[in-house]
Amino acid sequence: MVIRVVVADDQELVRAGFGMILDAQPDIEVVAEAADGAQAVEAVREHRPDVLLLDVRMPVMDGLEAARRVCADHPGTRVVMLTTFDIDDYVFDALYAGASGFLLKDVRRDDLTHGVRAVASGEALLAPSVTRRLIGEFTARRAGPSAPVRPPSRLLQQLTGREAETLRLLARGLSNAEIAAELTVSDHTVKTHVSNLLAKLQLRDRVHAVVFAYESGTVVAGEA
């Protein structure tokens, strides 16, 4: 299956560079480019891509607002934010809006293609150690009386014991292979548990499963 991608960045060289790298892959096709957030939203509406690479800071409509609109109106498109900084305030807001992760603009060629493939398949886009650091800080920033509250109990009650344990291990930053070793099961079984828990919790992908685990109190920031 070919992964359809839209690249949105106000810098033409960035768009062209990412486009050339991705189009060179046999399983990836860049179906459109956009120079601002409004164009990105329109490109997603027209082409319905699997992945939108979206710059955080753009004219006309910034990446955060574009991410909100795309995630709300086009759940089949996974949004990856492009940023210069590995921990950017806008990235946290974008994750909360529904984005599936982020890539640095100086990302290596292989990491770019791997990232697109990973997020298109619903896997973790970020390395486990980075995911843990990012989500830990993200949830800490969201803590407090003004933070939106997610009612988790009904959804959590749908999980089997194994699925609940898989969720806790995901939130600790473990990879599928590490979870399999921890539970003494196969990688395929872990993938099944992850797929089932995402469906039951009504989550887009693994990144948001980790966010859910922290927000619901399934795990506590900083716990081993």
Results as ranks from 00 to 15, higher is better:
Ile3Asn: 01
Val7Arg: 02
Val7Tyr: 00
Glu12Ile: 11
Arg15Trp: 03
Arg15Ile: 02
Ala16His: 08
Phe18Lys: 06
Ile21Trp: 11
Asp23Cys: 06
Ala24Met: 08
Ala24Asp: 11
Ala24Ile: 02
Gln25Asp: 10
Gln25Gly: 04
Val30Arg: 02
Val30Gln: 05
Val31Gln: 02
Ala32Thr: 10
Ala34Glu: 00
Ala34Leu: 00
Asp36His: 09
Ala43Arg: 00
Val44Gly: 01
Val44Leu: 10
Pro49Val: 03
Leu52Lys: 01
Leu54Pro: 02
Asp55Arg: 03
Arg57His: 12
Pro59Gln: 07
Val60Arg: 14
Met61Arg: 13
Gly63Cys: 07
Glu65Asn: 07
Ala66Met: 04
Arg68Lys: 14
Arg68Trp: 06
Cys71Val: 07
Asp73Thr: 09
His74Ile: 05
Arg78Lys: 15
Arg78Ser: 15
Thr83Phe: 12
Thr83Cys: 04
Thr84Phe: 11
Asp86Ile: 03
Asp86Lys: 05
Asp88Ser: 04
Asp88Arg: 01
Asp89Glu: 13
Asp89Ser: 03
Val91Ser: 04
Ala94Gly: 05
Leu95His: 05
Leu95Ile: 12
Ser100Arg: 04
Ser100Gly: 14
Gly101Tyr: 02
Phe102Trp: 10
Leu103Gln: 02
Asp110Trp: 03
Asp111Ala: 15
Gly115Phe: 05
Ala118Leu: 08
Ser121Leu: 10
Ala124Arg: 08
Leu125Gly: 01
Leu126Asp: 05
Leu126Met: 10
Ala127Ser: 12
Ala127Phe: 10
Thr131Val: 07
Arg132Ala: 13
Arg132Cys: 01
Phe138Trp: 15
Ala140Met: 15
Ala140Glu: 12
Arg141Pro: 01
Arg141Ala: 11
Ala143Gly: 11
Gly144Gln: 09
Ala147Thr: 08
Pro151Phe: 08
Pro152Gln: 05
Gln158Lys: 15
Thr160Cys: 03
Glu163Ala: 06
Leu170Cys: 13
Leu170Trp: 08
Ala171Thr: 01
Arg172Asn: 01
Ala177Pro: 03
Ala177Glu: 10
Glu178Ile: 04
Ile179Phe: 09
Ala180Asn: 08
Ala181Asp: 14
Leu183Pro: 07
Leu183Val: 06
Asp187Pro: 08
Thr189Lys: 12
Thr189His: 12
His193Ile: 01
Ser195Thr: 14
Leu197Lys: 02
Leu197Phe: 14
Ala199Phe: 05
Lys200Met: 09
Gln202Ala: 14
Gln202Ile: 07
Arg204Val: 13
His208Tyr: 15
His208Ile: 12
Val210Arg: 09
Val211Met: 11
Ala213Val: 12
Tyr214Gly: 08
Glu215Cys: 06
Glu215Arg: 14
Ser216Phe: 14
Gly217Ala: 08
Gly217Leu: 06
Ala221Asn: 11
Ala221Pro: 12
Glu223Lys: 02
Ala224Met: 13
